[in-house]
Design a binder for these strands. Structure first.
Length: 201
DNA sequence: TCCCCGATTAACT
DNA sequence: GTTAATCGGGGAG
């Protein structure tokens, strides 16, 4: 289980987002248990993108987005949900990839407790569900995915180009013309059956 | 300081 | 398909 190196993240979010599909998000809990889930859905957020938290510039909340790539940016929203992103691009640029859904691989028992559901399909299908299943909150904001021991990304089988699909991002009111949401078809993504075109790789 | 609203989810009808 | 839950961020005053 090789971790993705820093250089994998040091590129535009729009390139990193589709490339993360198929790789494995791993999380070590305080008691040592390791949870694993295969990333199947992502969204790209660039700095000059009005839908991005970084659009208005550096603020305390998005500080990590402007830092070096390969770190975790975690935000809190709707008064109850956490969502996690992988910081991309060179140090100084505010861009990131939102992790939106994953296929549970290991530690489903622990995820089920966190999520209060026995339905495996609902453990990591959705950005806030994924964060809750893996016990990720603001305390992990800034965690180093390349060198840290709390959360990291392992090289997975990857996804073939034919499997990758793309469409508009969701839950935003601007930037809906951009096809910056990427996913792998199947029961694990939060995408409903709707218009989507194959993505170039 | 005040106020609006969100990169969502679950529980409704 | 609709809506309540719930609170911090950030712009306005």
């Amino acid at each position: 289980m090789t971790r993705l190196p820093r250089r994998s993240f040091a590129r535009p979010a729009t390139e990193v987002a589709p490339e993360l599909l198929g790789h494995v998000l791993a999380r070590r809990l305080p008691d040592g248990a390791v949870l694993r889930a295969r990333i199947v859905e992502t969204e790209a957020y660039e700095q000059d993108d009005p839908a991005s938290h970084a659009y208005r510039g550096r603020t305390p909340r998005v500080r990590v987005m402007f830092g070096p790539p390969g770190h975790l940016y975690v935000y809190f929203t709707y008064g109850m949900h956490h969502c996690m992103n992988v910081v991309t691009g060179p140090n100084g640029t505010g861009s990131a990839v939102l992790l939106r859904a994953a296929e549970p691989l290991e530690g489903m028992d622990r995820m089920s407790i966190r999520r209060s559901t026995g339905r495996v399909r609902d453990l990591c299908r959705g950005p806030a569900r994924l964060a809750q299943a893996l016990d990720v909150d603001r305390s992990l904001d800034g965690a180093d995915l390349v060198r840290g021991s709390e959360i990291w990304i392992e090289r997975g089988a990857g996804a073939t180009a034919v499997n990758i699909r793309r469409g508009p991002r969701v839950g935003i009111r601007v930037g809906t013309d951009l096809l910056w949401r990427f996913w792998i078809d199947g029961p694990w993504s939060s995408v409903s059956r709707r218009a989507a075109v194959p993505s170039p790789r």
